[in-house]
Computed example of a mutant assay.
Amino acid sequence: MAKLLYAFSCSIDGFIAGPGGDMSWLTPFLGPPPEGLLPRIGALLVGRRTYDGDDPHRGGPGEGQAFGGGWSGPQFVLTHRAAAPAPGVTFAGDLASAVSAAKAAAGDKYVNVLGADVARQCLEAGVLDEILALPVPVLLGDGVRMFHRPGGAPIGLEPLRPNWYRVLR
């Protein structure tokens, strides 16, 4: 059965994107993903802002492609707004159906969650299984936080290996 993984790069001060969702800050730090990660991803669960958002690969050969062209497969975009059809992309209006469809498509691989708000929703719904945090040596000072839930209770994590955690429920 597929597991949901929130894998992301973030500044040392906890931002995954700069102000307005700007991802250009990440471009100088792009490199290959952790060894063996991409073959273990069977589907993507993507927030609409992330799907429509800035691309750290802009201007390069992998622009507009998942992981800069290093991965291809089914994508499920959580949205409440109409969207133009795109090959390999399914638009879903609610979290439960998006998660269910993504897990079915991923088989026994990971569903990689992209987008801070979708990751937060998955945590609150109790469906996020693991987190892979890839810190980048920069301080942004402002932008989109990796996890933001004012007034929320702490969520326990169990270390699995460096920077990789199981979500405790």
Results as ranks from 00 to 15, higher is better:
residue 2 A to D: 04
residue 3 K to W: 11
residue 3 K to G: 11
residue 6 Y to C: 10
residue 9 S to T: 10
residue 11 S to E: 12
residue 11 S to I: 09
residue 12 I to L: 15
residue 13 D to Y: 11
residue 15 F to M: 05
residue 16 I to K: 10
residue 16 I to L: 09
residue 18 G to Y: 01
residue 19 P to F: 06
residue 20 G to Y: 08
residue 22 D to C: 03
residue 23 M to A: 03
residue 23 M to W: 00
residue 23 M to S: 04
residue 25 W to Y: 03
residue 25 W to Q: 05
residue 25 W to E: 03
residue 29 F to E: 10
residue 30 L to E: 07
residue 31 G to A: 12
residue 31 G to I: 02
residue 31 G to V: 02
residue 34 P to R: 12
residue 38 L to T: 08
residue 39 P to Y: 07
residue 39 P to E: 06
residue 41 I to K: 01
residue 42 G to A: 01
residue 46 V to R: 02
residue 47 G to A: 00
residue 49 R to L: 11
residue 49 R to P: 04
residue 50 T to Y: 04
residue 51 Y to A: 10
residue 52 D to T: 09
residue 53 G to Q: 03
residue 55 D to F: 13
residue 57 H to A: 14
residue 57 H to R: 09
residue 60 G to H: 10
residue 61 P to D: 15
residue 62 G to M: 03
residue 64 G to T: 02
residue 66 A to H: 05
residue 66 A to T: 04
residue 67 F to S: 13
residue 69 G to V: 02
residue 72 S to Y: 05
residue 72 S to F: 06
residue 72 S to W: 05
residue 73 G to H: 06
residue 73 G to S: 06
residue 73 G to N: 07
residue 74 P to S: 08
residue 77 V to L: 07
residue 78 L to V: 08
residue 79 T to N: 07
residue 80 H to Q: 08
residue 80 H to K: 04
residue 81 R to C: 05
residue 82 A to M: 06
residue 82 A to G: 11
residue 82 A to F: 05
residue 84 A to P: 09
residue 85 P to W: 00
residue 86 A to Q: 14
residue 87 P to E: 12
residue 89 V to I: 09
residue 89 V to L: 10
residue 90 T to P: 10
residue 91 F to D: 11
residue 95 L to I: 01
residue 96 A to S: 15
residue 98 A to M: 04
residue 98 A to H: 09
residue 101 A to R: 14
residue 102 A to S: 00
residue 103 K to F: 04
residue 105 A to F: 01
residue 106 A to M: 02
residue 106 A to Y: 03
residue 107 G to A: 02
residue 107 G to I: 00
residue 107 G to F: 00
residue 109 K to S: 04
residue 109 K to T: 01
residue 110 Y to V: 01
residue 111 V to H: 07
residue 111 V to K: 05
residue 114 L to G: 13
residue 114 L to E: 15
residue 114 L to Q: 13
residue 115 G to D: 01
residue 116 A to P: 04
residue 117 D to W: 07
residue 118 V to S: 09
residue 119 A to P: 10
residue 120 R to E: 14
residue 121 Q to E: 15
residue 122 C to L: 10
residue 123 L to D: 09
residue 124 E to K: 13
residue 125 A to H: 11
residue 126 G to I: 03
residue 126 G to M: 03
residue 129 D to H: 15
residue 131 I to F: 09
residue 131 I to M: 15
residue 133 A to G: 12
residue 134 L to T: 13
residue 134 L to H: 11
residue 135 P to Y: 12
residue 137 P to Q: 12
residue 137 P to G: 12
residue 139 L to M: 15
residue 140 L to M: 14
residue 141 G to Y: 13
residue 141 G to R: 09
residue 144 V to G: 02
residue 145 R to A: 15
residue 147 F to Q: 12
residue 148 H to Q: 13
residue 149 R to Y: 05
residue 149 R to H: 11
residue 150 P to Y: 03
residue 151 G to L: 00
residue 151 G to V: 00
residue 153 A to V: 05
residue 156 G to F: 02
residue 157 L to Y: 00
residue 158 E to L: 12
residue 158 E to S: 13
residue 158 E to Y: 06
residue 158 E to T: 13
residue 160 L to S: 07
residue 162 P to G: 07
residue 163 N to Y: 15
residue 163 N to I: 03
residue 164 W to V: 08
residue 165 Y to H: 14
residue 167 V to N: 02
residue 168 L to A: 13
residue 168 L to Q: 14
residue 169 R to K: 15
